[in-house]
Amino acid sequence: MTWLLAATEPVVRLTPQARIVAAILAVLFMLLILDLIRRDRLLERYSIVWFVMGLAMLAGAAFPGLLELIAKLIGVRDVTIALFSIVLMILLALSLNFSVIASRQSKQITRLAQQSAIETIEDPPEDD
């Protein structure tokens, strides 16, 4: 197994400056989420996943070892590439999740429209 891991020691790491910027962005992001919930613009059930994303961002900035570990696990020598890959994967999963939600809601809307259409039927017309 060692030959598999030999070449994957991370060589490009996050700079302290990037980590500070990331931490600030993460905090701002979480504040935005909190504000959206507070103003009833975002349902709690959809906000949790975003809040967790913010926390993960903060964790990544505070403990660079985490990212390096992930880079090592997926065999990428550039930590920033590992970061982008992970973020891309998470966004992909999230958007798929939203498509599923949209499909479900579209089905529910159709059902509602059909029920309301049936309610609009008036009594049978007088036969002439």
Binding site: A113, Q114, A117, P124, P125
Partner: peptide
């Protein structure tokens, strides 16, 4: 002389 069910959209 038909009955009508109207879908809202």
């Amino acid at each position: 002389g038909a009955q009508v069910a109207t879908l809202p959209f």
